[in-house]
Amino acid sequence: MNLDFGIIAVVWPALLQGSLVTIQLTLAVLVCATPLAVLVALGRDSRLPAVRLPLAVMSAILRGIPPLLVLFIVFFGLPPAGLALDPFPSAVLAMTCYMAFYFGEVFRGGLQSVPPDQWRAADALGLKRSRTVVRIILPQTLPAVLPPYISHATEVLKGTALATAVAVPELTSAARQVFVVTFRPFEVLMVAAVIYAVLDGILLALQHAGERWAARTGTSTRY
């Protein structure tokens, strides 16, 4: 095979543009899904069946169907129901719904890893529930939550490629458009793969930074 990576000099603006969309989409989904996931996690173990049961059903359903189908439901299914969104917000909404429940399970495990006495100590001081969750409990879930969180975040990053199906111009979509006109699929797709790998690496670096923080403060050791 006659490889010519010189093509990159021509196509890099398109790939860069696609990368930026991929990064924006990933961040948007993480920013929307993470707080929702905390609420899902708290709700899944709520004392109130009216909160707990619907969430259990939704969690089972949403985690059991293909993400592409969720995306199609949002993009093609909702407009007749009166909600017509552009491709990018459609992708954010679909992946947020989906990931809120995946991340929800992650946080749920994390919350269960914190000794119940920590809640009691906060209660005894008169702290509000919301403050207890944000300041006292969630930071302590970090060691348990971080590895699965980052691995799911990597799934989000990879999953953004599905948005090409509703014409979001993210990296995979950009790479395809570029190789179709340049007839250099291998080189272009290899470069796209390297870009994904670099972005994955950034997520992993975040994980290590978080683990260092947990080790430094001693959050990771029970006493």
């Binding site: 006495d117 100590a121 005894a124 959050t219």
Partner: peptide, 26 residues
Amino acid sequence: RAEIGMVFQNFNLFPHFTALQNVIEA
């Protein structure tokens, strides 16, 4: 509860806070 201090058998300090942060939080 704010008027009633409680100290537990297992201390139950917040492990991610320093001694000072534990005391100033509430």
